[in-house]
Computed example of a mutant assay.
Amino acid sequence: MLGGLSTEELATIFDEWNRGELESFLIEITADIFKVRDEMGNDGGYLVDKILDKTGMKGTGKWTVQQAAELSVAAPTIAASLDCRYLSGLKEERERASATLKEAGLKDDEVIARVRGTVDRKRLIDDVRQALYASKICSYAQGMNLLRAKSIEQGWNLNLGELARIWKGGCIIRAVFLDRIKKAYQRNPDLASLVVDPEFALEMVQRQAAWRRVVGLAISAGISTPGMCASLAYFDTYRRSRLPANLVQAQRDLFGAHTYERTDMPGSFHTEWMKLARKGQIGAGASLN
């Protein structure tokens, strides 16, 4: 959309990507899909452009996200994908929302046209390639962490590197990328996450600038990229040694007396937040007087 790429150009790009680091079953079939013309219509266009934008599902994604929640494993990229399927099913609602927001003054076409005018197509294509690769690392990291958690719970003692090798033999997620995952777990069977494997970590750092450009560009144009956004948020959250979760814990303790831990001493603590806050207000008032 922002690159103004034709269906033929997209087919060529995906073919090219399938000869590099993104080589996979899904990239390959996507290139093939872009090449197929509509034989039922009369305009000689491409079939993919005639398909209703309403995704079906068999329940695998729902089951995966449920398992992640039960095991307390963060899987935002997988959850974002599932949410997109749910939203795609609301075709009539989305059409009404589009019309309502346009009447309210939302000018999508103008915004996209303005952003498109700033885009270097060649750079955008390469940025998307890098962003897709980095997002895949996060997605596979979440899936592997889910499998590891379930293995620990059930005592399966799964060999994650061997699983990656088996998948490469033939399944919907088969990809040359899986060789890299296998080697990562061979280097460290107790690897906490693919994100911290030295080789993957280096690649993510090298690609993060392109990744951020793609996500930022999409957001500025109002184009939904939930998978890439969720992966980037996962990366940015996971890599932080300190998060604003301290405020959440304070809120939980205030409204539910759930207690909290401190950074400077061991133990669990509870505070009478409202009483101390009022005391602080009184003290501040007194000092002003």
Rank of each mutant, 00 (worst) to 15 (best):
D49V: 07
A80T: 10
I51P: 02
G56C: 04
T30A: 05
G45H: 11
G59A: 08
F34R: 02
W63M: 11
T64G: 01
D109L: 12
G41T: 05
I33S: 06
E92M: 14
E95D: 10
A68S: 10
E70R: 15
F25Q: 07
R114K: 15
E28W: 00
K62R: 15
D83A: 13
R94Y: 07
T64N: 14
D43F: 05
T60P: 11
L87P: 01
E110G: 15
L10E: 00
P76A: 06
V111A: 03
S98P: 07
T77R: 05
D15E: 14
E103S: 12
D83Q: 14
R96F: 05
L10P: 02
L10H: 05
D32I: 08
G61E: 06
T12I: 04
G105K: 09
E16H: 03
D109G: 06
R114Q: 14
V111H: 13
L10F: 09
G45C: 01
D49S: 13
L82G: 01
D83L: 10
I112P: 00
P76W: 02
E110V: 03
R94F: 06
K102D: 01
D49E: 14
T60C: 12
L22Q: 01
E95Y: 11
T64M: 10
Y86C: 07
K35A: 09
I51G: 00
D108A: 15
R94L: 02
I13H: 07
A75K: 05
K91T: 01
A74K: 15
D32A: 06
K107V: 11
G89M: 03
Q66S: 13
G41D: 02
T64A: 10
A74E: 10
A99Y: 02
V111Y: 12
I13A: 07
D43S: 06
L26N: 04
F14Q: 00
V48M: 14
L71M: 09
S81W: 03
R19M: 06
M57Y: 13
A79N: 08
K62T: 14
A69Y: 10
F25W: 05
K54N: 08
R85I: 13
K50P: 03
D53Q: 02
A79S: 11
I112K: 05
D32K: 15
R96Y: 08
Q67F: 11
K54S: 12
V36D: 03
V111M: 09
E16N: 12
D83S: 13
K91C: 04
L52P: 01
T77M: 13
Q66A: 12
D53F: 07
V111W: 07
A31I: 04
P76H: 04
R85Y: 09
V111G: 03
G89C: 00
E23S: 12
K50V: 05
Y46H: 03
E70Q: 15
M40P: 08
A79R: 13
E23K: 12
L22K: 04
D38W: 08
L90S: 11
N18C: 09
L71I: 04
L101M: 15
F34T: 01
R85A: 02
L52V: 07
D109S: 02
G41V: 10
E93M: 02
Q67Y: 07
L26C: 04
Y86E: 09
E110Q: 15
